[in-house]
Design a protein around this nucleic acid. Structure first.
Lengths: 265, 265
DNA sequence: GAGTGGTCTAGACCACTGT
DNA sequence: CAGTGGTCTAGACCACTCC
């Protein structure tokens, strides 16, 4: 390894891994490290930038360079789909009492803040392709943001697209003032006679765009989980396309796949 | 936005998004951009480094800076678990004819290269916790790498851990020379009387470590999908823990969740 | 005010690509 | 060979934190 900044990065990396500096600890300053390794400050900065991009360090102006402390993860399990479907057919009081995100996080409404906005749009090529629709099909676009009361940034941004034609039977569904709708999307679709048969979720990971990093308050060295979920009804139509963005450093997705039993041999 | 490098990055970003430069196109050189924006080369380099980390650009020494071309994605669907379970009870010839990865990618054995190594280890705290085992429990550790014949880097690294006690009935299972085992892990477990009831997959995303980036040949600006899959048998035991690393820029995970039907109202 | 990281400069030299 | 990006230097000045 002939590059000075890689030697420095490698050395600092092993200091962290060996536990000689732990989460939250401060590293020596740029100038001190430059002195220690006999290199210029710029070279040390390059090493520190690499470790920051790896998610190992966190740099704070005026305070110093710290070993990043892992954030507590929010678990999202696909069990919630069945839970939500069962709930949608329960009494209105029961539906109003609980929400899907509360179910996931185990937290009450007083600890979480939701935000919903509705728009009417036309399907672009991407959405049309995903939903098996013609381009230009009128859609209801709903945007949801969920965050902890105590935190400034949402831990979840979701955009849902539903063909407007499907919602004709219940005009209330086009009005964002109905949110939070008791029983969620499953109950909303039930109100116009739609039953969901299955959810198909497409999971990808990538670095956040500049705008996404801003919206979600993602520090450098964090990945983004992007989930596109298709809700398919009992007539095999795509009745909802939901794109969800989740911070990679605080999300764990859990999927349980149940298998049919073997016949006795 | 007072920072010069952010203005430059923002301007170049919009050039790409507006399609004024498309995938594969070359951008002006560092020196040319410095001239154009009236800034030093270092400032331009900072802007280009940011866009590279976002996965938007690709820099090649001696050739130039290019707009990154998206790689073709390998789709991994949870349907394969049921497929593999069904296959495990078929004839030996049928099992030998196909593999799980071929099923996933739609490619034949001649286009893919597998590699398997076996080790015997003791459970550390992490594995013991995941498997509900005592620390130190003897495990069989199997490492698999899968790649295209035409490519140098694997698109998949998997490490599987099975309590050795479960495999006592079939010594052949401890020998890596048995790989590829016809019918895969499901058939291997079947040979010692274990039937899998369900798979539980935990999905997370993060930047690759330095070593992972090297192993998988990940370019800067790429995330890593890390999946921990627990195989749970019909007696509710964790019979396999499989940790899989997948390049975020070429993997799409698909999970289908089937819901039970409502009773007629 | 002392100490921290962030931005920016104006270079030098090197490694690599393509002609 | 000219042209590209990669490494490294030795600074200056700024924005911010903490005492």
């Amino acid at each position: 390894m002939s590059r000075a900044y890689e030697r420095i990065a490698g050395d600092l990396r092993s200091r962290v891994r060996a536990g000689r500096v732990g989460p939250g600890d401060r590293l020596p300053s740029e100038r001190a490290l430059a002195e220690e390794y006999g290199r210029s400050v710029s070279t040390v900065r390059q090493a520190l930038a690499q470790l920051t991009a790896e998610g190992l360090l966190e740099r704070v102006r005026g305070r110093g360079t710290f070993v990043r402390t892992p954030r507590r993860r929010v678990v999202r399990s696909n069990d919630r789909h069945q839970w939500a479907k069962d709930r949608a057919r329960q009494g209105a009081e029961e539906r109003a009492r609980t929400g899907s995100t509360e179910y996931e996080t185990g937290l009450g409404k007083d600890r979480l803040v939701f935000d919903a906005t509705y728009e009417q749009i036309a399907a672009d090529a991407d959405l049309a392709g995903a939903g098996g629709l013609a381009e230009g099909t009128p859609l209801l676009k709903r945007t949801y943001r969920t965050r902890y009361v105590a935190e400034p940034y949402p831990f979840n941004i979701a955009r849902s697209y539903i063909p407007r034609e499907l919602l004709a039977g219940n005009p209330q569904l086009l009005d964002e003032a109905s949110e939070p709708y008791p029983g969620g999307t499953t109950a909303q679709l039930d109100s116009v006679g739609i039953e969901i048969d299955r959810m198909v979720e497409h999971v990808t990971a990538r670095p956040p765009t500049y705008e996404e990093a801003g919206e979600l308050g993602l520090p450098p060295g964090t990945s983004l989980l992007a989930v596109r979920r298709l809700s398919i009804d009992t007539e095999d139509r795509v009745v909802d396309i939901a794109d969800t963005l989740l911070p990679g450093d605080r999300t764990e997705l859990v999927f349980t796949t149940r298998l049919t039993r073997w016949e006795a041999r």
